[in-house]
Measured scan of single mutants.
Amino acid sequence: MEVRTIKVFTTVDNINLHTQVVDMSMTYGQQFGPTYLDGADVTKIKPHNSHEGKTFYVLPNDDTLRVEAFEYYHTTDPSFLGRYMSALNHTKKWKYPQVNGLTSIKWADNNCYLATALLTLQQIELKFNPPALQDAYYRARAGEAANFCALILAYCNKTVGELGDVRETMSYLFQHANLDSCKRVLNVVCKTCGQQQTTLKGVEAVMYMGTLSYEQFKKGVQIPCTCGKQATKYLVQQESPFVMMSAPPAQYELKHGTFTCASEYTGNYQCGHYKHITSKETLYCIDGALLTKSSEYKGPITDVFYKENSYTTTIK
């Protein structure tokens, strides 16, 4: 009895394709271990004539594949690729409408935090270190965002349907971005203890939790000093293409032309909904596939993004 075979390709990165001759009487799992086709788990399936010449994702289970996976995804987590594939199996079914010149995501599976993050990423200057993220990001900007969303979920250790947080998501993504040249110098002034300067680099240099107003941050924000008295913390120097200011959701007025974009969060910790506000020729609110415009805006804002380049204080 002759062994019926077909020729397929296996890959971990969709760049390096490895030619395989597979036995049609055995499952993919018996031949390769966990195997995925377009995100779908085909591990328990036997090869079919229609699979001839198709590319299958496999887990990096030998040295060659491990090197290829690390170079593309910059992670050695053995569960990463499987999590990416199972997320992709959902995100490829989502709709990605162009809204006001940006790629958004039609609401499904509690994905409003991903839509808000995706919209924000198209408006701030950011370059990702893992080629996987950078490639998928370019495709997302062009309207094909399924891979990018699935990668975000995998890097953030999230599953489809789980509630997510924009600030946490951005923080994970910033860790995989090139923020080497970003720098922030802060000064804390206390009447009792004097003053202390701190220099922050990388992710810490672009994120701040405690106030939404970048102007206020430049002037000074009140913080408790270690001595128990009130101290003032203010920005001395900022070198970065953008800054992200966050605070627990509270009524906040966004003035046209003073910011790049913002995240609105309605609801409580267990259950809520994100919308995205962007400042173009007027203010726009993007909620999944829905767009509304207004000249002014007041609502429960939790993150505001500002364009920056270089700032030095005039406070002496």
Rank of each mutant, 00 (worst) to 15 (best):
V3S: 13
R4I: 14
R4M: 14
T5P: 12
I6M: 12
V8F: 07
T11S: 11
T11A: 05
D13A: 07
V21R: 13
V22F: 04
D23F: 13
M24D: 14
M24P: 14
S25G: 14
M26I: 14
M26R: 10
G29V: 06
G33T: 05
G33Y: 08
Y36T: 03
Y36K: 04
D38N: 11
V42L: 14
T43C: 07
I45P: 06
K46T: 15
K46N: 12
H48T: 13
S50R: 11
S50N: 11
H51I: 03
E52P: 08
G53M: 13
K54L: 14
K54V: 12
T55L: 06
N61M: 12
D62R: 09
D63L: 07
T64H: 10
T64E: 12
T64M: 13
F70C: 07
Y72I: 09
Y73I: 09
T75S: 13
T75G: 05
A87N: 10
A87C: 05
A87H: 09
N89K: 14
H90Y: 14
T91I: 00
Y96C: 07
P97A: 09
Q98D: 07
V99K: 00
T103R: 08
T103G: 02
I105M: 01
N110C: 06
A115E: 10
T116Y: 06
A117C: 11
L118T: 08
L119P: 01
T120F: 05
Q123M: 05
I124E: 08
E125Q: 14
D135R: 10
Y138T: 13
A140C: 10
A142T: 13
G143V: 04
E144T: 07
A146C: 13
N147G: 10
C149H: 02
L153A: 01
A154C: 08
A154L: 00
Y155L: 05
K158H: 01
T159P: 05
G161P: 02
E162A: 08
R167P: 01
L173A: 05
H176Y: 13
H176C: 06
A177H: 03
A177Q: 05
L179I: 00
D180P: 05
R184T: 06
V188K: 10
V188W: 06
C190W: 01
K191D: 11
C193Q: 02
Q195D: 14
Q197T: 15
L200Y: 15
L200F: 10
E204A: 09
A205K: 01
A205N: 01
M207G: 03
Y208L: 01
M209V: 13
T211A: 06
S213D: 14
E215Y: 02
E215L: 05
Q216G: 06
Q216P: 02
K218G: 02
K219L: 11
Q222G: 11
P224C: 08
C227I: 02
Q230L: 15
A231W: 03
K233Q: 13
L235R: 01
V236K: 06
V236A: 08
Q238F: 02
S240N: 01
P241T: 07
M244K: 00
S246Y: 01
A247G: 06
Y252C: 05
L254M: 02
K255I: 12
G257R: 03
T258R: 07
T258N: 11
T258Q: 12
F259M: 02
E264V: 10
Y265F: 13
T266I: 10
G267I: 04
Y269R: 14
C271T: 13
Y274P: 01
I277D: 00
S279P: 01
K280H: 02
E281W: 07
L283P: 01
Y284D: 07
D287A: 01
D287G: 01
G288H: 00
A289I: 10
A289D: 15
L291I: 15
T292K: 12
S294L: 15
E296H: 15
Y297V: 03
K298M: 13
T302H: 00
K307G: 09
N309Q: 15
S310I: 13
T312V: 12
I315G: 15
K316E: 15
